[in-house]
Structure formats: structure tokens, C-alpha cells
Design a protein around this nucleic acid. Structure first.
Lengths: 253, 253
DNA sequence: AAAATACAATTTGCATACAATAGAAATTTC
DNA sequence: GAAATTTCTATTGTATGCAAATTGTATTTT
């Protein structure tokens, strides 16, 4: 009987430590982020407050605050008297993405090389290890998240509060676009993935050596590789069979 | 007697139209923004939820949501279990500001020239009119806000969701720094203000002509002018009197 | 008297209840 | 039967009360 009480007490204490309101809030925050980054929640998807709050054991008040914070970082969009929805992507935004990314990425890596601390270097190396093992044996989502984490760290290293908002916004959509091309469909795409990993190593070296010019060059190379991956996915080599061989459902209505 | 009832009804209806919850929320949002931009609320100032909500006739729940949104745009910072405070500025952030601003400003004006619509041009001209009249007969805060509005419009013209977050963040601190140098203390500073106004006109012309290269050049010139104004304020010409002539209070404690 | 601790007051965080709004469904009108 | 209007339902927005946490103050201890 005493043991039962002891167990109950222990559970209660652990609950207080690990499952307090704040912890649930942070957990929800992270889960929504990763779900959005990995397309578990697709662009444009509606987020229902009631079901979300119930599913995560939070009342709607703190949930709504989480949604506001996510909106601030660009993960979701809020519509008046309508639900929140996952930030949308379109041809237009894709074009804007290609316009903005090279410049910001270059600036971030340059500043990272100039401002990094040793502790940050160690973190970056650790993140790169995770990325490599994700490439070897991880899922598409794990690869995307590991790559995202690597670049987030370079953003922290740059340590410029004015550049960071745009950089983070870019990383969100880079991850979502990447969810397609981190699913290699032929040898060419797989090769580019390992090349990306090698570039990460080079980026780490440049940053550690505080060689900002080298960092800028690597940023451009890394961006071009990424760009090539996207193009490979968007414009694949043509299908050999004629279109007539694709079965179509008969017209019924 | 009937007239009294009519008036009461009218007031009630108007109240519903103009002073509904949402309107109060938007108003609070705007007021906090302008107060922060014009240093009515100084960097680092604590924001008390209770007094703010009472003063604006809103309960704490929507107020807290407003604070979250302001935090997302970089106006305030939220600390756990502590109050929100106005985003701080320091030597470090000032340095970061000078690093990031030229690049972003150039990119924004270039894209503005490429993407602007005629309606936006008209708005920009109107904003420039307001700026000119603020220079002639407005307060320091009015000048700052008018200048801020002008540049916000160029940001809208650029229409790039990835660049906008950083640009807006820069504008916040540019306005706050500007609150010092839009208080001209000698002829040299006053001259630079009218020069800024002329540059605005040139910027409008370049954007209207969709001359993006010209827009980039003007962005650099405009930035250099702004930089010069800041330097004039930070490092003024020395005081002629000797330090000994400055009266000091006698040591009492 | 200085440091540490306990307590009280203030402030933030969360849950619930209620109000307002938007979208869908049903009814009426032509 | 189609269009417009009204009613209803589902969902978002706000207010209030209470719980948790922080900070400042008073008390105790050394």
C-alpha cells in the first residue's frame, strides 16, 4: 500500500517537473514547427483551435498565444475571425524565394565567420554529424530537419538581429521545398546530397578559420547546388512512354 | 423623451460600429507601435499588462495577444513570467544595424522599382507630401513617423515576403535612432533634412521609371546621408567652454 | 550587523464561460 | 425552381477568476 502512494507521489512530482503548462506549450510549439517544416502540415492547411488545444492538453488561451508566436516567425498566417493556416507557398513566393535567398545566405555565412564562438563551432560540428547520419539512415523528414538545424546554427553565429528574421523565414520554405528534393529519385540527386554534406564540412572549416570571404564563396556554391537540386526535381528528364499510355478514367459525368 | 431614446440608440449603434473589441485591439496595436517608434516608450521600458489593459479598455487576454504580435515584428521582447519590454538598443545592436541596413535597403528599393504598381506610386507620393509638410511644420515625432511611412511603402512595393521581416525590423530602429537626428540642432543638420527630402523625390522618380539600377544607387546615397546624420549627432563638434566652468553640485553625503 | 530564510504582495500564466462572427442550412419570396 | 433572406451551427474573440511564479520585505539566525 505504501508503495502505491510512493508511486503516485513520484508520478505527481514528475508531472509537475516535466509536464507543467510551460513544457506543454514549448512542446506544442516545437511540434507545430517540425510538422510544418516536414510538410506533415501542408502549406495552406487550416489549424483548428479546439482540436489542437484538446490534442495537446492545453486550453485555447495559451494555444492562441503559440499561434501568434508562430505567425511572427512566418510559420502560419492569422486571418480575422477565421482559423490560423499554415503559410502558403505559390509560384510567386517561390520566385521571391529565389530572389532573396542568395543575398541573405551570403551575408549570414560571412557574419558567422566573423562572429562565431568556439562553443558554436562545436555545436555546428555536432549538427553536421547528425546530418551525415540522417543522410545515411534517416527518413526524408529527418534529413530535412538536420539540414535545417545546421543552417539555423549558422544564423545564430551571425548574431545579427536584423538579418535573422528574414533568414529564418527563408529557412522555413527552404526546408519545405527541400522535403521534395531530399527524397532522391535517381543517382544524380543522391550524388548532390553527398556533395551538400561535403560543402557543409567546408563551411565549417571556413567559419572556424574566420575566413569570411571563403564563407561567402561557399554560401554561393551551396546555394547553387540547392538551386540545381530544385531544378532537377521541378524539371525532370522526360518520361519515355507516350502520353497515350497513361490510363485515364472514362468520362462518366 | 423619444429624442432621448433615439440618441441613446444612436450612441449604442455607433459604439458597436466604431468601438468594438477588434477596433480597440487595432488601436492599441497602432498606439504601441507609434509610441515605440517615437520613443514615447523607451527601449528597455517595461510594459505592465494590468495597467495597459485597463488604460485601453481591453481585458488582459487580447492585450497579451497584441504583445505577442508586436514581439513577432520586433517591437517588444517577451520574457517568461516577466513582463514584456520594449526592444532594447545597445552598441552591439547599433553595430549590427549598420552592417545589415545598406544591403537590405538596396535590395528593397531595387525590387520596389521592378514590382511597383501605379496605385502604390500614388500612395508613395502622398506619403512624401506628408513628409515634406512634417519637415516644415511638424514635430520631431511627426517627421520621424512620416519618414517611416515613406520607407514602409517602399517595402510594400518590393513585395518580397522573405526580405520584408528584416526590412521592417530595420525600420523600427531607424526610426528610433532618427528621433534624435530629426531634431536638427544646427544648420548643417537642417540642410541634410531637406536633402533627404530631395532624395525621396529622386527615389520616387526612379521607382516610377522602373529604373532598378538607379534605385539601388539612390538607396546607397540615401543610406550614406542617414549615416552622416547619425554621425553628426553622435560626434558633435566640441564644446568651447572648459570643463571647469560646468557647475557641479557640492558633495553632501 | 550581515546573511539567509520565510513570508507577503504583485504580476504573469492558464482554464473556463460567455459573446460575437462567419459559413452553412433552411426557409421564404418572387 | 432560383434567388434572396433568415435561422442555425460551428468557430473565433473576449472577459473573468484562479493558479503559479517572481520580487521585494520582514524576520530570524549566526
Amino acid at each position: 500500500m505504501q508503495i502505491v502512494f510512493y508511486l503516485l507521489l513520484k508520478i505527481a512530482l514528475e508531472r509537475q517537473m516535466t509536464d507543467t503548462g510551460k513544457a506543454r506549450k514549448i512542446k506544442l510549439f516545437q511540434e507545430l514547427k517540425t510538422d510544418i517544416l516536414t510538410l506533415g502540415l501542408q502549406p495552406g492547411a487550416d489549424l483548428d483551435e479546439a482540436s489542437l488545444s484538446e490534442r495537446h492538453g492545453l486550453s485555447r488561451t495559451p494555444l492562441r498565444e503559440v499561434l501568434r508566436e508562430l505567425a511572427g516567425e512566418g510559420y502560419v498566417e492569422l486571418r480575422d475571425n477565421r482559423g490560423a493556416r499554415v503559410s502558403d507557398m505559390s509560384f510567386t513566393t517561390l520566385r521571391e524565394f529565389f530572389q532573396a535567398a542568395p543575398m541573405i545566405y551570403g551575408a549570414i555565412l560571412q557574419l558567422a565567420a566573423l562572429n562565431r564562438t568556439q562553443a558554436q563551432i562545436d555545436e555546428l560540428k555536432s549538427a553536421q554529424n547528425d546530418f551525415v547520419s540522417a543522410l545515411r539512415k534517416g527518413s526524408v523528414a529527418e534529413r530535412t530537419l538536420a539540414n535545417n538545424r545546421f543552417h539555423e546554427l549558422t544564423g545564430e553565429m551571425a548574431g545579427n538581429v536584423y538579418l535573422l528574421p528574414s533568414f529564418k523565414r527563408l529557412l522555413i520554405d527552404h526546408a519545405r521545398i527541400g522535403m521534395t528534393f531530399y527524397r532522391p529519385m535517381n543517382n544524380e540527386m543522391a550524388d548532390k546530397l553527398s556533395e551538400a554534406s561535403l560543402q557543409h564540412d567546408a563551411i565549417i572549416s571556413a567559419i572556424e578559420a574566420m575566413d569570411d570571404q571563403q564563407a561567402v564563396e561557399l554560401a554561393e556554391k551551396h546555394w547553387n547546388l540547392s538551386r540545381g537540386q530544385i531544378e532537377l526535381f521541378v524539371t525532370p528528364s522526360g518520361i519515355e512512354a507516350s502520353l497515350g499510355s497513361v490510363s485515364r478514367p472514362p468520362k462518366t459525368a
